[in-house]
Design a protein around this nucleic acid. Sequence first.
DNA 1: TTTTAACCTTAGTCTTTTCTAAAACACTCT
DNA 2: AGAGTGTTTTAGAAAAGACTAAGGTTAAAA
Lengths: 237, 237
Amino acid sequence: MMGERASRAVLAYLKALYLLAEESSGSGVGAPPGLAQRVSTSAIAARMGVSAPSATNMLKRLAARDLVTYEPYKGGSLTQKGREVALEIVRHHRLLETYLVGALGVPWDEAHAEAEALEGDLSETLEERISAALGDPQFDPHGHPIPAKNGAMPKTSRSRRSLWDVGDGEAALIEQVPDSHPDALRYLAEVGVLPRASVTVESRGPIGGPLFVRIKDDKETAPMALSKEIAEAIWVQ
Amino acid sequence: MMGERASRAVLAYLKALYLLAEESSGSGVGAPPGLAQRVSTSAIAARMGVSAPSATNMLKRLAARDLVTYEPYKGGSLTQKGREVALEIVRHHRLLETYLVGALGVPWDEAHAEAEALEGDLSETLEERISAALGDPQFDPHGHPIPAKNGAMPKTSRSRRSLWDVGDGEAALIEQVPDSHPDALRYLAEVGVLPRASVTVESRGPIGGPLFVRIKDDKETAPMALSKEIAEAIWVQ
DNA sequence: TTTTAACCTTAGTCTTTTCTAAAACACTCT
DNA sequence: AGAGTGTTTTAGAAAAGACTAAGGTTAAAA
C-alpha cells in the first residue's frame, strides 16, 4: 500500500510523534483542521529514551520519506501519510491491550508493555480477527479511543480536563487513565478509579498536595489520596 | 538469566539451526547424547533467505557468544546455551500457532506466518498465560511437539518415517505435517489428512508420481492424490 | 594424481540506528 | 543590545546485519 515498509524504530517514532501531539493538544472529535501538532526534538528524545541527536537524525530521515514535516529548530509533525502509519500502530496497541486484558486475563497495568512488544508485528488479518473477537471495541481498558481501520477516532469529550482541575466538592466522570505506569495503575484499580467511574473531589492538600477523591455513592469508606502527578494524568468529562 | 539479550536476527538463526538439525536427524525421545547435529552454512543461508557470507558471518558471531560451536568449512551446531534459547523460541512459535488456531480461528495454513512474526516478542509471562489458557498442550496443530519450559520434549514416535515410505496397501497414522506451506496445508485440511488421522496408501503413480491415499474407514469417496514432495514432508507412525 | 564442481570464507561496502563531543541557534533578562 | 542558558544541530564513530566480488577448501571424478 505504501513505499518501503517501515522498520520497528520508524514505527516507534511515528507513534511517539502521534501520542505526544495528541497529549499536548486536544485532538478530540475530528482531525485538527490544519497540520498536525508540532513536537519538539527533545520531547521525542525523552519519550523514546534516546539522545537528542538521535531524534534529530530520525526526524530528518522521516522527513525524507514524507512521513513527517520537519523544520530545523522547530520540531516535527506528522504528514497525512505519517499519521496513517501512526494510527495503524496505535490501533494495534490498543486492540492488543484490550484483548490481553479481556481474553487472557493480563492485569491492565502489564497490558501496556506486552502490547508494545507485539504491536509492530501484528498482521492486518490478525488485527481484524482480534477486533472482531472483541466486537470491534471503541475504547481500550484505560479509556483511550481505538482508531478504526479507516483512521476515524471514536469521539471523546472535547474538554480535556484533568482530575486535578476539578474543583473541591465537584463530581466528575473518569474518562481516561494513563496506560504506562504499572504501579499507579495497580493502585487505581484497587481503589476503583477506573474509566466510567464517577468520583467526587473532596479536598486537596496544601500546595501540590494530594487530592482526596471518593467514588460516588460510597459514603462509607475513606476517600483515597491521589498525587498531583497522577491526578493530572487522569482525564475526566 | 543470560548475558546480553539476543536480537531478533540472532533468535531467528538459532531457531533455524535447531529446526534444521531436528529435521536432518531424528531428535525423537531424549536429547541426542553427543553434541547437537552440525548444520552447513548453505543450509542456514537457504533457510534464512540470506546469502552464504551472511550466514558465515552470523555463525562466527554466534560462536563468539557461545551459542554455537563453529568450525570453518564444517558448519555449526548449537551449544547447550544456544539450544536453550532456540527451544524457547520454538516453544513460543508452537504455542502461538496453537493459540491462534484454537482461540482466534486463524486457519492453520496462516498460523505459521503469524506466529513467526510474534514469537520473538512474546514475554515469559504472556507465554505462560497462553499455555495455561490452552491447558498446557504438548503438540501444535501440525502435530509438532511443543517443548516444555524446562526444555523437555513430548515424545513422538522414534520412527521418523514419511508417508512416502509407506508401502502400497499399508495403513498409517499421520503424526506431523509441515507448517510452512499454506497451499499444501489448505489442501490437506480439505481432504482430511490431519495429524492423528489414519490413512491407507492405495497406490502411486510411475516414477515420483502422486501417491493415492484414502482416509481409513472411508470406502466411498475417491482417494486423494498427494505429490511426492508433500508425502515426503508428512511423517507417520 | 590432477581436475573440477560445489561449497565456504575473506574483503570491502552499505544502511540503519545509536552514541558523544562540540558548535550553532533561540530566547530571555537586564 | 548583549550575555547567558538551554535546546538543537553537526560531525564523527560504532555496532548489527546484509550484500557482491573474489579467492580458498573439500572431496568426488577422471
